[in-house]
Amino acid sequence: MPLTRDEVQHIAKLARLGLSEDDIARFQEQLSSILDYFQALRRVDTENVPPTSHTLPLQNVMREDDPRPPFEKETVLANAPQREDDCFRVRAVLEE
């Protein structure tokens, strides 16, 4: 069952990707085949298998609450595509 154009566009928008018409058609097909694979997994009987969120046999990996020096400000800002004073400058975001 192939994904619809709208679904692909919605996913692209969530990922902040701009897709051409060709891209949309191609991803409709590719994403659909990925989902088909999950359909195959669905046929496995998992009745008595608890859901697994992590594959490593680890738990309670924590650190003590000890602060360490942060990075130098200039290092922090070194990759800023745009900078103003000591802040990253980005396109306007309107929330209000």
């Binding site: 650190r63 000890d66 602060p67 020096p69 942060p70 990075f71 400000k73 922090v76 004073d85 000591d86």
Partner: peptide, 24 residues
């Protein structure tokens, strides 16, 4: 706490200059 949630950066105070309590 004294440090951040997932990294050891100190917590910024109200008057910390911008981008001075930061790590990768």
């Amino acid at each position: 706490t004294r440090s951040k949630m997932f990294c050891p950066c100190p917590l910024p105070s109200l008057d910390s200059p911008p981008n001075t309590d930061v790590c990768p």
